[in-house]
């Protein structure tokens, strides 16, 4: 298997799907001539032309609205928004329209739209560019939500998202764009929505890492094994809706402990939701309260040191895990 960066894997997914199905086209700010703010769409304008690779004005609500209309009339648009913060401008189109139309019209119309966007902190882009909002979209019935954390999943899940007839919120991560990993070259390789990945097996504690935090969780797990003799099982849900709760519950039944690590805010977060589901379905297997490690409950700071302590790193995860075993 060739090694690719996350952004290259996404690029390969877009290219392959556009080659496979001429109804697939992409839209967004600076995705054509500039090759994308994060170079995900590099070379696609040259290969597929202006009809299928459309640079748009800075107007998120309009871009997504065009995507909804195109999807309703039979095309398979992939819309890129420059960051998840900007997607709030398109919230009406995403929540009131994309998520709802299939229901409102009694199933007569489908909206096979993909909205791609990166999230995440660490690059000193301040509170209007750095948030992690998978929880906002997880909240909305009618939307599928993918949070790939590896190049392989970036490709497999994006291809699956494009082929899916539901609107998909596809959340990438700025930190992950440069990360490398093995990616299958096979054009028919498609990942399954609703299938969690067990990134590391262990018997002592279950760590569920969301988006980039799946990577942080794995690093923390190695540290726990080497320094504390704690063997953690690391689960990456990969998609939050549909959610593979079975894999999580099965793991918790084995380990009796669960920690959720996410970059987003604590209140109403993915971890809050998962903690509720775990205690509902595995209460009698829990040996400690379900713990969460989340981003700080504040707008993302611009200052580098403050930004760095405003989202989770390995030491916080290690500490949270140990606190489920003993007083620390």
């Amino acid at each position: 298997m060739p090694v690719m960066r996350y952004r290259e894997a996404l690029n390969a997914a877009l290219r392959e799907e556009m080659q496979r199905d001429e109804d697939v086209f992409i839209m967004g700010e600076d995705i054509g001539v500039f090759n994308g703010a994060f170079k995900v769409t590099n070379g696609l304008l040259k290969e597929f032309g202006e009809k299928r690779v459309r640079d748009t004005p800075i107007s998120e609500n309009t871009i997504v609205g065009m995507g909804v209309g195109a999807a309703m009339t039979g095309l398979r648009p992939v819309v890129e928004l420059m960051t998840i913060n900007f997607s709030l401008l398109a919230m009406d189109q995403i929540v009131n329209h994309a998520a709802t139309i299939h229901y409102m019209f009694g199933g007569q119309v489908r909206v096979p739209l993909v909205v791609r966007m990166p999230q995440g902190a660490g690059h000193q882009l301040g509170p209007t560019h750095s948030h992690s909002w998978e929880a906002l979209y997880l909240h909305v019935p009618g939307l599928l939500v993918a949070v790939p954390s590896t190049p392989e999943d970036a490709k497999g899940l994006l291809k699956a998202a494009i082929r899916d007839d539901n609107p998909v919120i596809f959340i990438e991560h700025e930190y992950l764009y440069g990360q490398r990993g093995d990616v299958p070259e096979d054009e028919d390789f498609v990942a399954d929505f609703g299938q969690a990945a067990i990134r590391r097996e262990g018997d002592d504690v279950t760590i569920i890492g969301i988006s980039r935090m799946a990577v942080t969780a794995q690093k923390a797990a190695e540290q726990l094994a080497q320094e504390h003799e704690v063997e953690a099982e690391v689960i990456d849900p990969r998609t939050l809706r549909p959610l593979d709760l079975d894999t999580i519950v099965k793991s918790v039944e084995k380990t009796n402990r669960a920690i959720i690590v996410e970059e987003g805010w604590p209140h109403g977060g993915v971890g809050a939701n998962l903690a509720a589901l775990i205690q509902e379905q595995a209460f009698d297997y829990l040996d400690a309260p379900v713990a969460r490690v989340t981003g700080a409950d504040l707008p993302m700071p611009y200052s580098k040191p403050l930004e760095q302590i405003a989202f989770p790193h390995e030491p916080q995860v290690v500490e949270a895990v140990l606190a489920t075993f003993r007083d620390v």
């Binding site: 009796n256 209460f283 009698d284 297997y285 829990l286 040996d287 400690a288």
Partner: peptide, 14 residues
Amino acid sequence: DENGRVKASPVARR
């Protein structure tokens, strides 16, 4: 605790 309730996790109780 002070009320005499034993503090035990759910799995320990089961």
